[in-house]
Design a protein around this nucleic acid. Structure first.
Lengths: 330, 330
DNA sequence: CTGTTAGCGCTTTCAA
DNA sequence: TTGAAAGCGCTAACAG
């Protein structure tokens, strides 16, 4: 049982495969034949062999996606956004993971390119000189979604603004002794924007304040285990760098009978289903990760079709969600 | 873009392109020619055209994966398992989502087939007659990982045994009034094995017992909102059908000052990072989802290379994890 | 070992 | 409007 080809379709309709090809690519076909071909295709479920097609034409209908890892809800939500747009445009996605290894990431980009994808979305760890050279070497659009570099296409969630907005809220509620609990900064994977934005807002607006900082990783467990250290520092508020950190800390504080926001205030970045069940509701910055995947894909598809090659930066909006986790100090 | 073809290389070496092809694919080439070809390739930076190669060779190095959705940690963990094995075997994965729509799922399988993948892994909603026909029609191996059907290749986590093991534990601790909180059964996506195993164990071993059942969905919110109903039923134990349900219920009970396991016992299926932070630790059945993806991929790759076509069933082991969430009734 | 010869399935002139 | 024919770059018999 071999695959149906345009030749089969042509035979079924008693016409030549050229006509079928024309039908498929929007060329001249008589209304009569058009109808016959349409039926034959529907009946057989024929789909054009993209290896053959690509051999002749220019486009593969394939979009490459390079990810640092897979088992993360944030990542899979982005992926969903990418996938949905691809589907609407008849594109398929080819995924590669880098396992947080820049060398592997570069390899993946190159390998995807050699496999003939029309464009690549990279959730990158870091942008190195090699990235720039590679992107310039290959002749297809590449967009980065976790980084910024002036010479490349980058689409990001506006973490910096998120940091500033959250800071503004805490500042307005007179918090002056803050603990920022973020991801270790040597982890290239993180975007430092949240923290920078937060710090800068205070720097520019507040006087007589103190922001201390502690570092953890992406796991819930590690943040949870830092609970005691955090309490001992007695800040008026803790800002949690990710939704995992927020969740872990909320659970820890609850278990140790520390009242939020009476004893300590909590602010976060990110949200999750589990988090939204916890009480009190946490004041947090929300991000539209599906929208990120969507935007990146729309952007790159647009580049693919228009063959535009100028570099752009896009920042996606962030959303403030007020909960009851912050004490209003007078 | 490598404009150079094997013909160019052949010309440079004054040999035929067949020899170059042989060189590339590990066939017989004299040492002398081998050296010349090697130099020419290095000098030109030649890379073989992926599409031409695939057109001819009939193996694409592509594995299709059909998923009901993407934004789920269970799914992305399976995907990670698939991806890791693919990587080791130089395969790439092409992903399609069905959005819980059987028609779409069938289309995806067909479309992947037409795109030339060498095999397909399907996380299916349901196996219909159409699935069987489609699988028989297409000439590549297809393995299902969320269902069982005698005429198809199926690799599953042994939910039935998981159900029985959990039941055994509750039975041994003398629980006789149980509430089973599962996913609505009309949702084809679920595997009923957990519940069936649980019920059957009691049926076979217990006398004078009562198992009631309540249905919810995959969201945390819905299970959480059922908290009050559950309490009102006053069972001695609640069995939660998924880790989300377990998490939501634990949070609800905690917030309403109901003590576990003194007031009510909890048993679960599945585990998660957030869940493992909650107290008391929940007694639950653990599943190796990465292993599921891994097994399915190894199995299908094996079929691809050996062209074997017999149908098999594989059940993956489950793991019992005892916590402190179950009261030992004497 | 090597070259010749056929295509793989599709697009694209070019005549008709 | 349509069909014939010529490849795209590569692999795989087959004969030498």
């Amino acid at each position: 049982m071999s695959k149906i080809t345009i030749q089969d379709i042509a035979n079924m309709c008693n016409i030549s495969k050229s006509s079928v090809s024309r039908y498929l690519n929007g060329g001249y076909v008589s209304e009569q034949n058009r109808q016959k071909i349409k039926e034959a295709i529907e009946q057989t479920g024929f789909e054009t062999n993209f290896f053959a097609k690509r051999l002749k034409s220019k486009k593969s209908g394939l979009l490459g996606v390079v990810l640092p890892k897979m088992d993360s809800l944030v990542i899979s939500t982005i992926l969903m956004g990418i996938n949905n747009v691809c589907e609407d445009n008849n594109y398929s996605i080819l995924i590669k993971t880098s396992n947080f290894d820049t060398k592997k990431e570069l390899q993946n980009i190159n390998s995807l390119y050699n496999q003939g994808v029309d464009g690549i979305i990279v959730y990158s760890l870091d942008i190195t000189q090699e990235h720039i050279e590679l992107v310039n070497k290959i002749s297809i659009p590449v967009v980065f979604i976790n980084n910024n570099h002036k010479d490349l296409d980058c689409i990001n969630i506006d973490d910096y603004t998120a940091g500033r907005l959250l800071a503004e809220y805490f500042y307005n509620n007179n918090h002056k002794d803050i603990l920022f609990l973020g991801i270790v900064e040597k982890n290239k994977y993180i975007r430092p924007g949240r923290k920078i934005g937060f710090y800068e807002y205070y720097q520019e607006n507040a006087t007589d304040y103190k922001i201390r900082s502690l570092e953890t990783d992406f796991s819930l467990r590690n943040a949870y285990d830092m609970g005691n250290d955090i309490i001992n520092l007695k800040p008026s508020a803790v800002i949690c760098g990710t939704e995992h950190i927020t969740t872990a800390l909320m659970i820890y504080l609850k278990q140790h009978n520390i009242n939020i926001p009476e004893d300590i205030s909590i602010g976060g970045f990110g949200d999750s289903d589990a988090l939204s069940l916890l009480k009190p509701e946490v004041t947090t910055m929300k991000f539209d990760y599906e929208g990120l995947g969507k935007s990146a894909t729309e952007y790159i598809l647009n580049k693919i079709f228009n063959r535009s090659m100028d570099k752009n930066k896009i920042s996606l909006p962030v959303f403030f969600k007020e909960g009851q986790s912050v004490k209003k100090i007078s």
